[in-house]
């Protein structure tokens, strides 16, 4: 049973085609791609899906389910993955399952671990894991606060692409064991196993239980809902985990445009117009 899985909740745009086999065999990664570029998920994702399918020699209608990392993650890139997964599934008439993106990293860890990703605005998204199982809901917060919360919970190790961004806050924590795909940081394309080459490398024990991934690995997300997919369980609504409200302030009353003291009328008028146009483009766009 072929499952297309994807995640766009971090700077990594990641796609995997996973074959869910009978229990002893476990899931097999047929092809995967990851490209690190925080600002181009919208342009990268669809061609990467096309390439992953082509590398495995699979036509879209052969895909029986879609798995999507549902965040938390920066809103714009997160939405690219969510709507792409939902639309691809709807076009084919197959279910789309949402999985907490942090689980794509945390599920591959052992012991008590904090998974940290970048939330921008000097904050991180995070969740706590115990032997690969998430404890509680993911959160968003200042790195120092998150670090203190993790320490208080007895966590001494953090992983994920957000931890390295705040070395001071997470200085006292251990890092993931070496040898994983941690070398993936930076820009460039990593082709995972595909039908032609090295599928053995990642499929030995399901292709999923190697070192800790540095980004939410789509194949891990697929594994987490494999039982639901195989059993044909209803995926429920595909809901993004934004964890933040939209930035929007209700306007005060209109500003007076008539000056209360003498002023150079023309330039004042022009300046007012410019300022209000700037505010409009930053905050709201009139219909």
């Amino acid at each position: 049973m072929l499952v297309l899985a994807l995640d766009t909740s971090t700077a990594a745009c990641a796609v995997a085609l996973v074959e869910l086999g009978a229990p002893p065999a476990g899931p097999l990664v047929r092809a995967s791609r990851v490209v690190w570029d925080a600002r181009r998920h919208g342009e990268l994702l669809a061609p990467m899906m096309r390439d992953v399918l082509a590398a495995a020699g699979v036509r879209p209608p052969e895909v029986r389910a879609v798995v999507v990392g549902a965040g938390p993650g920066p809103f714009t890139s997160l939405r690219v993955g969510m709507v792409t997964g939902a639309a691809f599934a709807a076009a084919l008439g197959v279910p789309a399952y949402g999985v907490c993106s942090l689980d794509g990293i945390g599920a591959a860890t052992t012991g008590p671990v904090g998974v940290i990703t970048d939330a921008r605005r000097r904050e991180v998204f995070w969740a706590r894991y115990q032997d690969g199982t998430r404890v509680g809901e993911p959160g968003v917060g200042a790195p120092a606060t998150v670090a203190a919360d993790l320490r208080a919970a007895g966590v001494e190790r953090v992983t994920g692409p957000g931890a390295g961004l705040y070395p001071d806050a997470f200085a006292g924590f251990g890092t993931p064991p070496a040898g994983g795909p941690g070398e993936l940081t930076g820009s460039g394309e990593q082709s995972g196993s595909d039908a032609q080459g090295g599928s053995g490398a990642q499929s030995g024990s399901g292709g999923l239980s190697g070192a800790e991934p540095e980004y939410p690995a789509p194949e891990v997300l697929a594994r987490l809902v494999a039982a639901d997919i195989v059993a044909g369980r209803d995926p429920g609504p595909l809901t993004p985990r934004y964890l933040r409200r939209p930035d929007a302030a209700e306007p005060r009353g209109p500003k007076a445009v008539t000056a209360s003291r003498p002023e150079p009328v023309r330039s004042a008028t022009a300046a007012t117009g410019t300022a209000s146009a700037g505010a409009a483009s930053a905050g709201t766009m009139p219909v």
């Binding site: 809103f75 714009t76 939405r79 930035d247 929007a248 905050g283 709201t284 766009m285 219909v287």
Partner: peptide
């Protein structure tokens, strides 16, 4: 909000 809020629209 008296105008379209981009993030609300995108959601």
């Amino acid at each position: 909000y008296g105008g379209v809020v981009p993030e609300i629209a995108a959601r």
